[in-house]
Design a protein around this nucleic acid. Sequence first.
DNA 1: CGGCAGTGGTTACAATTGAAACCAATCTTA
DNA 2: TAAGATTGGTTTCAATTGTAACCACTGCCG
Lengths: 173, 173
Amino acid sequence: MTTDNTQSETSDLANPSEAVRPDDLRLEKFLPYRLSVLSNRVSNAIADAYSARFDLTIPAWRVMAILGRFPNLSAADLVEQTAMDKVAISRAVSILIKNDYITRSEDLADRRRQVLNLSELGRDVYERIVPLAQQYENDLMGSLSTDERRQLDSIIEKLMARAQDWANRGLID
Amino acid sequence: MTTDNTQSETSDLANPSEAVRPDDLRLEKFLPYRLSVLSNRVSNAIADAYSARFDLTIPAWRVMAILGRFPNLSAADLVEQTAMDKVAISRAVSILIKNDYITRSEDLADRRRQVLNLSELGRDVYERIVPLAQQYENDLMGSLSTDERRQLDSIIEKLMARAQDWANRGLID
DNA sequence: CGGCAGTGGTTACAATTGAAACCAATCTTA
DNA sequence: TAAGATTGGTTTCAATTGTAACCACTGCCG
């Protein structure tokens, strides 16, 4: 209940029988809204950069980012690592294979699984994208002080945890 | 199952400054990625809450949020206020009208424009949603200290500005 | 006036996304 | 070892979203 009430008079008590008018919602200060706008701006800019240079969507790029670090994953492993869902992974993978950016091989031990890896070409692209991605991040972070970066990191963790709770425990009532 | 590092050829052994291999990108620490996950989690939870109770999508709710504060806006005004695009607004508006949540009247001065307002019913709903939205925000913010809230506010502003630059000035090269 | 560029807003269509059904392989247990 | 339950992954179909074309009106300039 600590919504910073920048409204002139915030006397909760001082409201007689008059129709109880709720405070207006100031969308431009509403965290979920701001997060959404910020995230979209950032994502769109970066998506443009990736697709202009490498013909990669963000989901596809994410898959490559993970495979670059952790070879021999299955699609299910990717789901776990990326917070993307099954279907998105499946689609990204199939595009990446079509582009010869990754390879898919059967897992002999479990013939349902398919082991994914960057191809030569894929690793090549990976190694060119990583710096690009880092450049974007550095540019963003460049607008923050060292302190602010630390703060942001920890704040995001906390918000993430809380939002995760919502998903688990169900909605607020 | 963290996999074995199968990078035979890329001269691991040559630790000297022969940095052939770029640092891996740690997706889970990559700001654009984290923002996206956080924003999606938050938005989805809230979207569920709105739609479960009021059959409102987020775009529609945003339109109502703005109209609640600023009556007599046109669709173009809404575009400006919400950072949503023309089409999204148009669609949200048409749904809201169908639901009798808002009214649309001709602007006599300029017959292209249409003046939008919450209807009685709409204001009713608005007044019930605002607290709900605030509850979600408070719950999120509840995981942060007062300091952190201030910090977050200012950090978001900075990031937003930087991301905005990207859109204006074109991509990083 | 008459033409034409610019605005407000909607429509049409393509691309993206999500939910659920689905197939195939594996694991369980009996 | 066969039946059912589970897991890995893809396909299908509907809903959402983005882009571009579009219509109606206004405003401007000749």
